Measured scan of single mutants.
Amino acid sequence: MAAGGDHGSPDSYRSPLASRYASPEMCFVFSDRYKFRTWRQLWLWLAEAEQTLGLPITDEQIQEMKSNLENIDFKMAAEEEKRLRHDVMAHVHTFGHCCPKAAGIIHLGATSCYVGDNTDLIILRNALDLLLPKLARVISRLADFAKERASLPTLGFTHFQPAQLTTVGKRCCLWIQDLCMDLQNLKRVRDDLRFRGVKGTTGTQASFLQLFEGDDHKVEQLDKMVTEKAGFKRAFIITGQTYTRKVDIEVLSVLASLGASVHKICTDIRLLANLKEMEEPFEKQQIGSSAMPYKRNPMRSERCCSLARHLMTLVMDPLQTASVQWFERTLDDSANRRICLAEAFLTADTILNTLQNISEGLVVYPKVIERRIRQELPFMATENIIMAMVKAGGSRQDCHEKIRVLSQQAASVVKQEGGDNDLIERIQVDAYFSPIHSQLDHLLDPSSFTGRASQQVQRFLEEEVYPLLKPYESVMKVKAELCL
């Protein structure tokens, strides 16, 4: 049975990233139509530049190519590739079939990587351009969430054990800070992308030097003109047959890092959902379990974690691919890159769409948070109580021993009897502590235990987050809708 299948058929496997999760716009960027249309555009740009620099290419040939950029006979191309065992030459023939007058000058002087690699770089750039505003929107939604809850005390956790208090907004800023680093890295790697350009079979530009009869300047002009037509500021000066596969490492490393950030955020949300302090959106008709109707599973956060793990592992592909590119190139890269580049971007696209949807509907339960604080705060307040007693004339050592005994009794009630923490009640009825009984409410005010959390939130948002989001103001209103 021949390899390949009808990918629109229910009898043929289709990647869930495309069929179930990723956005239509990201799927289109990695589609065959987008790819092969870009090949034709690159052939047109090459012909236009070659004509401008004096090669015998007519206006009629150029116009014929322009008129057929979208006229792609995919069936013919597939048949040609089956016959020739070469995808680029299959599309040269297919393009030439609908451009008979231009057929002889299509791909003039070029090698397969002229269309293959340059198209990949265009796709990487455009895919990054799709991700950047999506990530900015996630940051914006979380920034709104953090600002609104900047002063809401909550129990902090280290080692997932109760620690000092923080605020809900401050905790959210930990998430935002990681995503801001990801946004900066995505922008950097996007701006650092260079075009492969017009380089020939081993990167020496020998074929173009021959076409222009040894004119170095025209060869350099050709490279520059096509690079500018493709919208790049610069091209690699040095290439082998391909652009260095280190570029793929750079791009997928940034995406993998984004995956790590999203995994951490969504894990926190899942843990908070278990504590009943916070939940992701839950639709009115949504079913959490087929057997347990009360369940409210954090399905979206779980999906993000599941896909983020996949995204983090994909960076190993370009690392290994770059390491086995012998001399000017081997074909070890080809099949692998067809999979890992598309999957990385479709996965990143999915987790950003999902995280935006989550961040637009996060639900906080202040009463649950308050109750958990009441359970733990008495123990945390013991040092403040000791200091207040010393100020009232008591002995630190005597007070410490009193607190120690009462704390152990209260802990026994919590752990052995399943009761509430009654340390404060014990202190309130103990005559030894009568000098500070009137101060206990103040000493137990949760806001006095959150330090500068709310001020940190305000400063972080104003100095770091809002300036970073400013270039994306025009796209901030787009909502994230999930079908599944």
Results as ranks from 00 to 15, higher is better:
A3G: 13
G4A: 10
H7T: 13
P10F: 12
P10K: 14
S12E: 12
A18G: 15
Y21E: 09
A22H: 15
P24C: 00
E25S: 15
E25M: 09
M26H: 09
C27S: 12
F30A: 09
R33T: 12
T38A: 03
W43E: 04
A47M: 04
A49K: 07
E50P: 12
L53I: 09
L53W: 06
G54H: 06
I57L: 13
D59W: 03
Q61W: 06
E64C: 13
K66P: 02
S67H: 02
N68G: 08
E70L: 15
N71F: 13
N71D: 07
I72G: 06
K75A: 06
E79P: 00
E79Y: 10
R83N: 07
R83Y: 08
L84T: 04
H86K: 07
H91N: 02
H93K: 09
H93I: 13
H93E: 05
F95K: 04
F95W: 08
G96Q: 07
H97R: 07
C99E: 15
P100Y: 14
A102C: 12
G104Q: 04
I105N: 09
H107I: 00
H107L: 03
L108G: 09
G109M: 03
A110C: 04
S112A: 08
C113A: 02
C113G: 10
Y114S: 01
D117T: 03
T119E: 03
I122L: 03
A127V: 05
D129G: 01
P133D: 02
L135N: 05
A136G: 10
R137K: 04
V138P: 03
I139V: 03
S140T: 04
F145W: 11
E148W: 04
R149W: 08
A150S: 02
A150G: 05
P153F: 01
G156S: 08
T158I: 04
T158M: 01
F160W: 00
A163C: 02
A163E: 00
L165R: 04
T167N: 03
V168E: 07
V168F: 06
R171G: 10
R171Q: 05
L174R: 10
W175F: 00
L179K: 06
C180Q: 12
M181T: 09
D182E: 03
D182M: 08
L186R: 05
R190F: 02
F195D: 01
K199Y: 07
G200V: 07
T201G: 09
T201D: 03
T202G: 05
G203R: 04
T204Q: 01
A206E: 01
Q210T: 09
L211Q: 00
D216F: 02
K218R: 02
K218Q: 06
V219P: 00
V219E: 10
E228P: 15
G231W: 09
K233F: 04
A235L: 11
A235V: 08
Q241Y: 13
Y243D: 05
Y243S: 07
V247D: 06
V247K: 11
D248A: 12
E250F: 12
V251F: 11
V254S: 09
L255W: 12
S257D: 02
A260Y: 09
H263L: 00
C266E: 12
R270C: 02
L272P: 12
L272F: 12
L275Y: 05
L275K: 03
K276I: 06
K276A: 04
F282Y: 11
E283V: 04
K284M: 07
K284N: 13
G288S: 13
S289K: 15
S289W: 00
A291M: 15
A291G: 09
M292D: 15
K295P: 13
R296W: 05
N297T: 13
N297A: 05
P298W: 13
P298M: 04
M299E: 10
M299D: 06
R300Y: 05
S301P: 04
S301V: 08
S306Q: 03
L307P: 13
R309W: 08
L311W: 10
L314V: 04
Q320M: 15
T321A: 04
T321I: 10
S323Y: 12
S323I: 00
Q325C: 10
W326M: 07
R329N: 11
L331K: 00
L331D: 15
D332T: 08
D333E: 05
N336M: 07
N336Q: 03
I339G: 08
I339W: 11
C340K: 10
L341G: 12
A342G: 08
L346C: 02
A348V: 08
T350H: 13
I351G: 05
N353I: 09
T354L: 09
N357R: 09
I358Y: 15
S359L: 09
E360M: 15
G361I: 08
L362G: 02
V364S: 09
Y365T: 09
V368R: 11
I369A: 12
I369N: 15
R372T: 15
I373G: 12
R374F: 01
L377R: 07
L377G: 11
A381D: 12
I385A: 12
A388H: 00
K391Q: 08
G393S: 02
S395K: 08
D398F: 01
C399T: 09
K402R: 13
K402P: 10
K402I: 15
R404E: 06
V405W: 15
S407V: 12
Q408K: 03
A410I: 00
A411E: 08
A411P: 09
Q416H: 12
E417S: 11
G418L: 14
G418F: 01
G419L: 06
D422P: 01
D422K: 15
L423T: 05
E425D: 03
R426A: 15
R426T: 00
R426K: 10
I427E: 15
V429I: 13
D430E: 15
D430A: 12
A431E: 15
A431S: 02
F433Q: 05
S434M: 15
S434Y: 04
P435H: 09
I436T: 08
I436V: 12
H437W: 03
S438C: 15
L443M: 11
S448E: 04
R452C: 06
A453E: 14
Q455G: 11
V457E: 00
Q458W: 11
R459F: 13
R459T: 09
E463F: 05
E464N: 11
Y466L: 03
Y466M: 13
Y466K: 08
L468W: 07
Y472N: 06
E473Y: 12
V475M: 10
M476Q: 15
V478D: 06
K479P: 15
A480N: 14
A480T: 01
L482K: 13
L482H: 11
L484M: 14
